[in-house]
Amino acid sequence: MWAIYKKELKTYFLSPIGYISIGIFMLMYSIFFYATTITYYSVDMGNLYYATARYGLLLIVPLLTMRIFSEEKRNGTEQLLLTSPKSVTSIVLGKFFAAVTIILITIILSIVYAVIVSFFGTVNIPTMLATILGFILVAIAAISIGMLVSSLTENQIVSAIITIAILVAPWFLIEISDIFSAVDLMDKFMKFPYGLISIPDVISLVSITIMCILITIILIKRRKAIS
């Protein structure tokens, strides 16, 4: 797993995609920092993370995950991985954690805003940590969904569009029926910015992640038999 993780992380920064993703994230943090914190003279960091999760995670993560398996499949390098003595599980997890690392980097960089706020007031640290926990959980769920989609197609664009559709569609489908809130990641993030760690929300985000990772592993193993 370690070998694949290192190589994947390196690849993010050898192609511009790592820098672009982090750059766009920082731009979004800045915009929302201005819009939610500075404009309202507030020390509340919750809205900052909520807005970034909604518009950042769900739109940027697909760009991060679209290449994970699609690119390997198109270039044929998938053959190198799958004929190596590494297990499918370690390949999938290595790639997954590399993408998670990119998001973690942006979170660490975002702490700078808390530092700025702390000059003018007191930041509620526990609430902020709860929000960051929720942010990470939403991020890993979104990444696992993106990775699953990427393992289904050779085409990166198709992979990105389908992932965006899966992540964003529930926002509008709620208008039709409340049932769709069950698949809306943002719905599960709602309580974290208030400093509430809701166990059902944590469980559902973690289980979405585990489920998507497992399906990815099963699909790749299964494809050996049918392709």
Binding site: A3, I4, K7, T11, L14, S15, N75, G76, T77, E78, Q79, L80, L81, T83, S84, P85, K86
Partner: peptide, 25 residues
């Protein structure tokens, strides 16, 4: 195994690629 069509990671150097393959092996 050297698969058909020479699949490689174009963003790596030969040295990096081979040492990645060594790790995989």
């Amino acid at each position: 195994y050297m698969p058909e069509g020479v699949p490689l990671y174009y963003e790596l150097t030969p040295k990096e690629f081979i040492s990645y393959m060594a790790e995989l092996k």
